[in-house]
Every structure is written in structure tokens, then in C-alpha cells.
Design a protein around this nucleic acid. Sequence first.
DNA 1: GTCTATATTAGGATAGAC
DNA 2: GTCTATCCTAATATAGAC
Lengths: 213, 213
Amino acid sequence: MSATTGAPLSEQSILATLEDSGDTAGATAVRLMMAAADAFADKGFHATTTRDIASRAGLSPAGVYVHFTSKEDLLFELSRRGHRTARDQLVAAASAADSPTDALRSIIGGFSKWHAEHHQLGRIVQYEFRHLTPEHRETVLSLRREIDKVVRGVLSDGVTSGEFEVDDIPSTALALLSMAVDVARWYSPEIRRTPDDIARTNGDLAVRLVARR
Amino acid sequence: MSATTGAPLSEQSILATLEDSGDTAGATAVRLMMAAADAFADKGFHATTTRDIASRAGLSPAGVYVHFTSKEDLLFELSRRGHRTARDQLVAAASAADSPTDALRSIIGGFSKWHAEHHQLGRIVQYEFRHLTPEHRETVLSLRREIDKVVRGVLSDGVTSGEFEVDDIPSTALALLSMAVDVARWYSPEIRRTPDDIARTNGDLAVRLVARR
DNA sequence: GTCTATATTAGGATAGAC
DNA sequence: GTCTATCCTAATATAGAC
């Protein structure tokens, strides 16, 4: 976590996410993924050109195709790695907690924080999904289902233990995820609230939403 | 509200929204807006071609430019009319209620329902925003600020009356809006929950989130 | 593995007839 | 107000040299 360069926070966190998310990738491929993440988050998948990605990464337009078979392939890699780290973080937070209340605060707070710190990747993950090929969409969808399952599991544990009072677990899980996911839409590094503030308030709100009175 | 044609619900509700949202528009212009709404919601602004819009509306590619100056102009009209009806509905719901609790249930439930019934327009309103020109963005932004204000006003009324217990009004308002807005992302006419179900559960959750214990 | 050059297609918008 | 024809630019992707 040491900041040795002058790169902005978002770049560093995207870098960290892309570098250790399963499959390794060469340095140039990572540079391309970062350039693409920047551009996709900024302008959207279709409004981004391969020339744009290449030049941001310091390559010629043709250089991209050595590392990725197509522009969509780049999107897929970003999407897959983004979903994977998000899921891993959720699972880790849920299993480290020692009560459902703790777990809920931690997963919704943590997920909200992730969508603030990685709001670029978050937007790609949430909004560029439809531009994946059907096969790639399927792969990513199964990661999403895992994420849903973690949240429902925590809610159901809390109901069993008597800490929570929940009418409808799937609907409540969805509303909680909405709170966290939507952070990627409205967050900007310029606002007053820090990612930690957001984690705290959203974590508290989550507990409030389900706590027994 | 009589259904005289075989058109799907979403088409009818988009039509209704576009027809009575302030400025009038000719029949062909409305047809073009509906075609564009369909296409933008489905594939996004940049992935949609003017040829595609024209052919869905039964016109030649050139026919579009008689009614709109550019593709972006079409997006702007959709965005403006969508925001306007959404805001009008919120304001009406808030002033018809006779307590802050009622008002909150009604605005968040109603807003959630709107984003389900009009999920196509909702996606355009929420996700294609960045593709507007700076001037058009500004116009739409001021409509958004009005929407925020309605929600904050209801929360603040409830705190004053003693019905609500809220730590941080802006953050809570944002979380409530996230719940409703995100419906446009996940809703599909094929799911089990109806727009009315969604209105009910999200309205109840909203009240639960702020009610004094 | 990177480059220059280019094939190829597509897409926004306009001209001008009817 | 709508059409056909077309201009012009830009974009994905590949060929082939180094």
C-alpha cells in the first residue's frame, strides 16, 4: 500500500485490483487494461476507440491486438477481474465477522467503499455488462450470483439468530446491494465524503434496515 | 389508461410519458422518440445508429433530421421528458400525503415503481446522462437537484415532527434514491415481482430505514 | 512484440429531387 | 416532410516489415 509514485489514488487501486486477481498478465497487458478502464469508465465502451486505449498505454493502434483479441476481450478481462475482487472482498468480510450484525455492516460498508475507491471499475462492472458477448456475460453472471448469495446468507443467519427482522430476504438483499452498487454512479473523488465515510454511513444504514426493534 | 392496442406495457407507458411531458411534439417525432428509447435502452447511446432508429420508426435515415437536429438532440429530449415526469410524479406524491411517513412511503414506492414501469427510460435517464452535451447536461442536472430536494424535504419534515430519526439527511436521502433508481438496472418484465410489489416493498423498507424506534 | 500502412466497413449528417 | 444517393470521417482489425 505504499505510494511511491504520483499517480492518483484511483489508478493505484485499479492497478492493485488488476494485478492480483487470479490469472497473471504481462506488464503491457496490465497497462492496456488500466488505459481501457480509464477510458471505458469515462466515456463508455462504445464511445471508446481502440486508438484511444492504445495511445493512453503508449502503444500504436495495432499493439493492442498482440495482448487482447478484441476490444470486447479487454472489457471482459476488466469485468471478470473486477467482479472477482469484489466477490473475494465480500466473502472475506462475511467470514471474518463474529455476528450477523457485524457481518452485515462489514459487507455493505465494505462493498460501498469498494464502489467508491474503484468507482471506475465499478461503473464498468455495473453498466458495460450488456456489451459483453453472451458467453462472457454468462461467466460474469455466475460471479454475480455468488455475490447475491453472500448477502442473502448473512440476512438469513441474522433472522435465525434473532438479530434481524426481515419480511422478504431476496428483496431486502437487493435493496442493500442497490445502496452499495449505486455508489459507483454518484461517487466522485471531488466530493466531501470519503470512501471511509461512505462505508460507515452505508454500513449503519444497512443494519438499521433489518435490525429487530 | 385503456389498452386498445397489442403493444407491450413498456411501449404504452413510454408513449404516455413522452406525449404529455410539457412541450408537444408531432406524431412522427413521438414515434422517433419511442424508437430511440427502445434502442438506447437496449444497446446504449453510442451503440445505437441513426439508421437503426429511423428504421424502427419506419423512416429513411434522412428522415430523422427533419425532426431532430442530431442523435444527441434525440437523447436530450428523452432525458428531459423522462426527468420531468419523474419529478412531477414525486412532487405530486409528496404533496398528496398527510404525514411524513406517508409521504416517504409514497415517494420511494412511487419512484421505484416508475423505474420498473419505465425501466427503459429510467436507464437512459440514469446511464446515458454523460453522453449529453455540457449545456444539455446542465439542464438535466437542475431537474435532478429538484428531485433530491423533494426527498430531503420529506426527511427533514419527519425529523421535525418526531416521526423519523435520521443521523445524516443528505446521505440517507441518497441511499433511499439509490434503492429506487437501481430498480431500472435490475428490473425486467420477466421477473416474478410486479412494479406494484416493488413499490410496496421499497416503500416499506424506506420507512423502516428512518422510523423512530 | 512493436511498428507503419492499409483494408474494410460503418455511421452521422447533408444535398437535392419529389 | 419524406425519399434516394452520397459525402466524409472514423473505427476495428489485419498484413507484413523490422
